[in-house]
Amino acid sequence: MTLPVETQERLAFLVRVVGKEITHLEYAANQAFTPPLTLSAVDDLDSNPALALRLEAFTSRFCRLQDTLGDKLLPALLKALGESPSALLINLNKAEKYGWLESVDEWVSLRQLRNKMIHEYIEDANVLHASLVTAYENVSVLEQFSGQLITQVERLQEGEVDG
Results as ranks from 00 to 15, higher is better:
1 M>Y: 09
3 L>K: 09
5 V>T: 04
7 T>G: 05
10 R>H: 07
12 A>G: 12
19 G>H: 09
20 K>S: 11
21 E>N: 10
22 I>M: 04
25 L>W: 11
26 E>L: 11
29 A>D: 04
30 N>T: 12
32 A>V: 08
34 T>R: 11
35 P>W: 07
35 P>V: 06
39 L>F: 13
46 D>M: 15
46 D>F: 15
47 S>V: 08
47 S>C: 10
47 S>M: 15
50 A>K: 13
51 L>Y: 13
53 L>I: 14
53 L>G: 07
54 R>H: 14
59 T>E: 12
68 T>R: 04
69 L>A: 02
72 K>A: 07
72 K>F: 03
81 L>K: 08
84 S>G: 10
92 L>T: 10
94 K>L: 14
94 K>N: 09
95 A>D: 05
101 L>D: 00
102 E>N: 01
105 D>L: 00
106 E>R: 09
107 W>P: 00
110 L>Y: 03
110 L>D: 01
114 R>L: 00
114 R>S: 04
115 N>S: 14
118 I>P: 10
123 E>R: 12
123 E>C: 01
127 V>M: 05
131 S>F: 00
133 V>E: 14
136 Y>H: 11
136 Y>Q: 09
137 E>P: 06
140 S>K: 06
145 F>I: 05
145 F>V: 08
148 Q>E: 07
150 I>L: 05
152 Q>W: 05
155 R>W: 03
155 R>F: 11
157 Q>C: 00
158 E>H: 06
159 G>V: 01
160 E>H: 08
160 E>D: 07
